[in-house]
Amino acid sequence: MSVLLNQGPNRFSLTHDIELSTLKDTKHSLILDIQDEVEASLKVDLAYGSTLDMFCFNTSNQLNTQEIYTLNQDSVLNLSYGDLTQGETTRTVMVNLEGQGSQVQLSSATLISKNTDLKYQFTHKAQHTVGDMKNYAVMIKDGNLSLYAIGHITENGAYSETHQSTRVLNLEGSKKAAVYPHLIIDNNEVQASHAESTGQMDDDHLYYLQSRGLSEAQAIRLMVKGYLSSVTENIADASLKDLILEQIDKKVEEIC
């Protein structure tokens, strides 16, 4: 199915393969709901000068998606993933920055309780392109994560920037977290950075919160919410933001 996005807000569920596109110099927002069991591909084409704020809200039982985003000249993609699923997730995201001056900001917040395979890749194919990726993951009981974060600046990507950071918080009972941050740089006139941390709850942070009266469980809940809530930072729609924060609250109360 092919859909030309309306200007302004759009919302629908991902149930099957879909292709989305924008018109030149337009602004759009899109909430993509992902529920039940989904296996689908998603192709999104951003026309010259268009902007898309997109939030994928995953509460599915099982998910397998292949996503390809094509960014033409001066287009801007703000892409956020909120994964509050307790099912298995496999997601491959390829963002191709084809046009000069195109930009992508990707942020993901993922609660991991089963096998989760994620791959996020930016490929900078034109000059003056910018990519910024921030991944936050919380591993809970039986969680098993493999996450590739890749920034590739090709020979044609002079004066481009690609940045990424990934933070993984391991709670008791999680199995394995494997994070592979890659920067593949084929042009010398670029800026690139990556940061990755994985570890357990910081004892000093816990002590600090407890010293103000919070129990250990309350302190952990507060910090997990903080991790996951970071995904809402790029969401301008206040009511959507509140809804997501409410869902995060509810989910965290369930699991911690």
Partner: peptide
């Protein structure tokens, strides 16, 4: 923890 500036092909 992490790897730095991996210069390799085949990740795409």
């Amino acid at each position: 923890l992490g790897t730095c500036a991996v210069k390799e092909r085949g990740m795409e």
